[in-house]
């Protein structure tokens, strides 16, 4: 099995290339969105990482828990090692729930419609 951290960074480099993201920006503490990745890029990153590493860490946890390059590496490392989510990644979870989540979904739809208007 290849080094999962190296694999994730390679995938981030490959996908980031299309967005003009420099490999030097892929530091563990940097936010993936702040670096310039869009949500569809992250979906592709996760798909490529899953295929290469043979594990899907997001079967049981939301990807919205992942904020940084380090979080992404850690969640795959944990899944490969059969460990539960580590604290630092879990602490990143700020997903709204209940009525707040319904409001968040309506806001998302409204934002998209507004962008298209």
């Amino acid at each position: 099995m290849s080094d999962p951290r190296r694999t994730i960074l390679t995938v981030l480099e490959e996908v980031g290339r299309d967005r003009g993201i420099e490999p030097t920006a892929l530091l563990p503490q940097r936010g993936l969105v702040d670096i310039g990745f869009k949500s569809i890029d992250l979906a592709r990153v996760v798909a490529l990482a899953e295929i290469r590493l043979g594990v899907d860490p997001f079967e049981t946890r939301p990807i919205t828990d992942i904020r940084t390059v380090g979080d992404l590496c850690r969640v795959f490392e944990d899944a490969l090692a059969g460990r539960p989510a580590t604290a630092s990644a879990a602490e990143g979870a700020t997903r709204p729930s209940g009525p707040d989540r319904g409001a968040a979904m309506r806001r998302r739809a409204a934002r998209q419609d507004a962008e298209e208007a």
Binding site: A43, R44, A47, E50, I51
Partner: peptide
Amino acid sequence: CLKPMLAAR
């Protein structure tokens, strides 16, 4: 199924 499709674009 979308995983390999996204990978292949």
